[in-house]
Amino acid sequence: MDVPETPAPTGLADPEGLAELVRLLDRRGAVVLSGAGLSTESGIPDYRGVTGRSRGASPMTYQEFTGSEAARRRYWARSHTGWPLFARARPNAGHRAVERLRGSGHIAAVITQNVDGLHGAAGTREAVELHGGLHRVVCLGCRRGSSRAELDRRLDELNRGFRKPGAVLRPDGDVRLPPEAVAGFRVAPCADCGGVLKPDVVFFGENVPVHRVEHCYGLVDEARSLVVLGSSLAVLSGLRFVRRAARARLPVAIVNQGATRGDDLAALRLDLPLGPAMTEAARLLGAA
């Protein structure tokens, strides 16, 4: 389609930049790499504010989780308390616009660093969840997979009345709890083998499975452009795809509120709210 040189007024701060993004998407075959900033409009906080500075959240590492029963108790107590808030999150306008653009062929694939499942809930069920999903649980012993909803019921039975109102959700889907509240929490073992249960997500200090990384590299290699949505690219797991695209001379567009680690590799950099920006891009491309 022919995109007008000057789009209709959008109410966004950078209509010229948005027009460049639309022209890039109009080439079709874009791969989206999404991060936590895409889900903040759904009520899930990110690790960094619009300035790119850390919010002070201290995520548990894989080594802590696997090496300490007390750490696992702390993790599951906090996560169990926050789960109802996390599970209530629904796709926002940004997720829905990405799915419309995928349906129209402008976006070929979606890679997400998020563990909230909101791309899938918006209809993008083949989105690659780079870091896994909090809605799944895996046993570190027998490797049996199960749903987080099932585990939540078991934890609730073991810890009646543990949840208290007024909890404030953190980026990992958990909440802060005082040590004395955590001390009495009972952790559920694997229902099959009695082993240690872990959320099916990649913790800090744990590697993304090699086959998943290679699959994502393949998607980037076949893309006509890479569009980063809502990621500061502070960790290598996402930044490596931007670097790969740049080495292949694929145009990279970054839409994020705040600076990112990949800004110097981007052909286009937009500091705009994701929901309104992607909704307008979809409208201008006839995917609304």
Rank of each mutant, 00 (worst) to 15 (best):
I111D: 08
T81H: 15
G262L: 03
E222S: 13
A282R: 05
V110T: 14
G103W: 04
N159C: 06
T112P: 00
L250A: 13
R244T: 12
S104I: 00
G43K: 09
N256A: 09
S146R: 13
W76D: 08
R212Q: 12
A287I: 13
G195Q: 09
H106W: 05
C193M: 06
D174Q: 03
Y75E: 05
L233D: 05
P276F: 08
A77D: 02
G141P: 11
V138E: 12
E64M: 15
V3K: 10
F203L: 15
R73G: 08
R96G: 01
V98Q: 01
L284I: 15
P199M: 07
A77P: 09
A246G: 06
A246H: 14
P209C: 02
G286Y: 00
A77V: 00
P59S: 06
A108N: 02
L285V: 10
E206K: 07
R186I: 11
G43W: 04
R261K: 13
G194K: 07
W83T: 10
L177H: 14
V242F: 02
W76F: 14
P276N: 08
A183R: 15
P189S: 07
D172L: 12
R48H: 07
G37H: 01
G194N: 13
L21T: 13
R125I: 13
G184P: 07
R144S: 14
A121V: 04
E126P: 03
D174E: 11
T260R: 05
A149P: 02
F203D: 12
A288P: 00
D46M: 08
G82Y: 01
Q63P: 00
V196G: 04
S147R: 14
L268I: 05
G52Y: 05
G195R: 10
D221K: 11
R48C: 06
R154M: 07
C216D: 14
Y47S: 09
P45L: 02
R125A: 15
A8K: 11
L151W: 13
L197I: 13
F185Y: 14
G29D: 08
G49I: 04
R163M: 09
V22L: 04
S58Q: 15
D152T: 12
A87F: 01
V31G: 05
P91C: 02
P199K: 01
K164P: 03
D263P: 12
R244S: 10
L270S: 03
P84Q: 06
R55D: 08
G238T: 07
N159F: 04
F204Y: 14
R143T: 14
A282E: 00
V32I: 15
A8P: 04
V50D: 11
C193Q: 03
A97G: 07
A246Q: 09
S104V: 05
I111K: 00
E41G: 10
R153F: 00
V137W: 03
G35C: 03
